[in-house]
């Protein structure tokens, strides 16, 4: 068992899981989407990105690309949340919640691709 692979798989899966947890539920209902979960998803996604640094294989490059996409989406979601809850006069409306959740939905897609890559890599791994 390779500890590096365990850590790597853990973070990739955790990022996808947290992202999914935040995404699930009625898209425009703020009560169903916990902002702490978004924060956790963003942090874990950033860690997963750094873990993918410096891999020279083609698969590694695609891994890094998907993570960067997820980061970008989650950062945008976080930015929209900050804007909606603190800057905009109206506060967190159903419309802005929908924007945040759909952005995290995009990140979820990227994270799913990441997971698929991880699974593919594992399945195609032959010892010897």
């Amino acid at each position: 068992m390779n500890l590096e692979k365990v850590v790597f798989g853990f973070f990739v899966l955790l990022a996808a899981a947290l992202n999914f947890g935040f995404f699930i539920g009625d898209i425009s209902d703020p009560a169903l989407h916990n902002v702490y979960e978004l924060f956790a998803a963003l942090v874990v996604s950033l860690i997963a990105t750094v873990l993918k640094f410096g891999d020279r294989t083609q698969l590694g490059a695609v891994h890094l690309a998907t993570s960067l996409v997820a980061d970008l989406q989650l950062l945008s979601a976080g930015f929209v949340w900050v804007y909606a809850s603190q800057v905009a006069e109206t506060g967190l409306t159903a419309q802005s919640t929908a924007t945040i959740v759909s952005l995290s939905g995009g990140a979820l897609l990227a994270n799913l691709v990441s997971v698929v890559l991880l699974v593919t890599e594992t399945v195609s791994f032959h010892r010897g």
Binding site: V50, L51, F53, G54, D55, R56
Partner: peptide
Amino acid sequence: FLIMRRMR
């Protein structure tokens, strides 16, 4: 690439 790995 090695440098990037070491910055992890």
